[in-house]
Design a protein around this nucleic acid. Structure first.
Lengths: 220, 220
DNA sequence: TAAATACATACTAACAGTATGTATTTGGGG
DNA sequence: CCCCAAATACATACTGTTAGTATGTATTTA
C-alpha cells in the first residue's frame, strides 16, 4: 500500500477496529491479526509501526473513546455556579451518564465477567481513580466546603458509590436484569448513599431507566 | 518417572503449584510450563492427563482451596438456632472471614487489578453468586421471615453489600491502605448497610482490623 | 537529494493443546 | 496365587496460533 500521506487516518482506523473487537471478544480473545483483518489491505507491520504492543493499542483505543465523554462531563460541571450538592446530582443525571452508556452499547461488550475480565479490571481501577482524581471526590469536598453536603467520610463514600455505580448499576459485565430490578438497585444505592450524606438526586431513576432502554435496544 | 501408584498425590501437587502461580502472576501470566517446572521431574503430559485445559486447572485449584472454607462458614451458621439477624452478623464476624483471608494471604495475589483481572472477575461473579445462591440472601430472607430483619430490597441489599465486602473491604487487588482507612471503609459500609435494613454488627470492625493485620504481616 | 516516515514481508520464540508411545498397575479368570 | 489383558499414569514429540521483531521498500518531507 505504499505510504499514507495522512498517517493519523491509519491510526484512527486501527483504534476503531481494535475498540470494537476488544469489547466484543475481550482482550485475550482478540488477536492482532483479528484487528489487521479488519483493516483492508493493511498488515501487521503497519500496526506495530504505530503502536509498540497490544497493551498500548488497548489503552489508546479506550482513551480515545472515553476522553471526549469525560471532557463533556467535566464541562457540564464547570459551567455556572452550582453548589457541590447540585454538581453531585448532575454527575448522575441522564445528561452526564447516557452519552457514556451509548458508547458502551455501541461497543457491544460481552456480558461475561471472565471474557471481559480485562475491561472489568479497567472499570474497577477506574472507579478508584474517578473518586480520587476524577469528579466525584472533588465535588463532594466542594460540597462540604460550601456547606451543601454533610459527609463524614468523603473519600470512602466516594469510593463505595463509584464502585457500585460502575460495577452494579451499569450492566456491562452481566446479563441485563429486568427494568424493575435495575430501578430497585438505583433505589437501594440512593438510600445507601443518603446514609453517608450523599444525595444522588431523583434523576438517578431516570438515568437508570434510560440506561436500561439503551441497553435493551442494543439487544442485550 | 513411570507411573505413580497414588495419582491423587500428583493431582494435589499440580493444584498446589498452580494455585500459587496463578495468584502470584495471574492467569495469563502463568504458563503450563511454569507449573510443570515446579513439579520436579514431571512433564506436561502428566498435567494434561489429569486436566483437560488450563481453565480447568484454574477452577480446580481455587475450588480445592476455597471449598473447605465455605464449608466451615456454612457449618458455623447451621449450628444452633439463631435468628437471621444473628446469622448475618456472624457472616461478617472474624471467625467467618479470617480463615478465608489467611488463605488469600498465603496465595500472595498480585495487588494489581489488571494482572489479577481473572481473579477479579472470579470475585465479581462470586459476589453475585454469594448473594443469590450462597449465604447472604438466604440469611436475610430468613431474618425477614422470623422478623429479626426489616429490609425492603433484600436481593439488592445483598448484592451491594456482597460487592463492597468482596471488592472493597478485602484488599485483594489493590495496594493495602492504612489501617484507619480500612476501618473507615468498614464504618462507611456498615452505615450504608444499616440504611437498607442490614445490621452487620460491631464485629465487622474487629474483622477488618484482623484482615489488615493478616495482610500486613504477609508483607503487602 | 538525503533523511525520516509509513508501511510490507518474513521471521522468531513462547504458548496451549494434541498425538502417540511406554511403563506400571489393576482386575479378573484359571 | 499367578498370569495376562486392559486400563491407567505418565513421557516424548509434535502442531497451530500468537505477540512481537528484523528488515526491506516505497513515499514523503525538509
Amino acid at each position: 500500500m505504499g505510504r499514507n500521506k495522512y498517517p493519523e487516518e491509519t491510526v484512527a482506523k486501527i483504534l476503531d477496529a481494535a475498540l470494537e473487537l476488544f469489547c466484543a471478544q475481550g482482550y485475550e480473545g482478540t488477536s492482532i491479526q483479528d484487528i489487521v483483518d479488519r483493516l483492508d489491505g493493511m498488515t501487521k507491520g503497519a500496526v506495530y509501526h504505530h503502536f509498540k504492543s497490544k497493551e498500548e493499542i488497548f489503552n489508546a483505543a479506550f482513551d480515545r473513546a472515553t476522553a471526549p465523554i469525560a471532557e463533556h462531563r467535566r464541562a457540564t460541571l464547570g459551567a455556572g455556579n452550582m453548589t457541590g450538592a447540585q454538581k453531585l446530582k448532575r454527575l448522575y443525571a441522564p445528561e452526564s451518564v447516557v452519552p457514556q452508556i451509548e458508547l458502551w452499547a455501541r461497543m457491544h461488550p460481552a456480558a461475561d465477567p471472565v471474557k471481559s475480565s480485562r475491561l472489568l479490571a479497567m472499570q474497577y481501577q477506574g472507579s478508584f481513580d474517578e473518586s480520587a482524581d476524577g469528579n466525584l471526590l472533588p465535588v463532594i469536598e466542594e460540597g462540604i466546603a460550601d456547606g451543601s453536603i454533610a459527609c463524614e467520610c468523603p473519600r470512602e463514600a466516594a469510593e463505595a458509590v463509584s464502585l457500585l455505580a460502575n460495577l452494579w448499576l451499569l450492566p456491562l459485565f452481566r446479563p441485563l436484569e429486568p427494568k424493575e430490578r435495575m430501578l430497585a438497585r438505583a433505589q437501594c444505592l440512593a438510600q445507601m448513599a443518603a446514609a453517608v450524606g450523599l444525595d444522588l438526586g431523583n434523576e438517578v431513576f431516570q438515568t437508570t431507566a434510560q440506561i436500561w432502554d439503551v441497553w435493551n435496544r442494543a439487544g442485550w
